[in-house]
């Protein structure tokens, strides 16, 4: 399996790239690959994170709505109950926690 095939999927609704830098930094610091995609069909971060999780090869997905609300979700959980919630201004933490969820390490809450 090539490295490109495993990643945490990040779905965002109309967010500027430079605002997404911190989420990605959180994942990178933990050494977990990620893929950024825009998704304008879905409105809430709950829906975005659920879709991200089910399309993510690592089963963990991040959804960011256009207001900057963030949800971290796992494929095996109920779709309407995201595992973690956060905001864009503390998005390093969301990225880090998503990565740690993949690695099975304790989270920073």
């Amino acid at each position: 399996m090539s490295l490109r095939e495993v990643y945490v999927l990040i779905l965002h609704h109309d967010i500027q790239l430079d605002e997404l830098k911190e989420v990605c930094a959180g994942l990178e610091e933990e050494g977990v690959p990620y893929l950024l995609q825009e998704e304008k069909q879905l409105d809430t971060c709950i829906q975005l994170s659920a879709k991200a999780a089910s399309n993510s090869p690592l089963q963990v997905g991040i959804g960011i709505d256009r207001f900057g609300n963030i949800c971290v979700q796992h494929e095996k959980l109920e779709k309407d109950k995201p595992y973690l919630r956060g905001e864009l201004k503390s998005s390093r933490k969301a990225g880090k926690n998503a990565a740690r969820l993949v690695k099975g390490l304790s989270l920073t809450l």
């Binding site: 796992h74 959980l77 595992y83 740690r100 099975g104 304790s106 989270l107 809450l109």
Partner: peptide, 10 residues
């Protein structure tokens, strides 16, 4: 039931 976030990995 899933373990809550404050217990994950701990």
């Amino acid at each position: 039931t899933p373990f809550p976030p404050h217990t994950f990995g701990k």
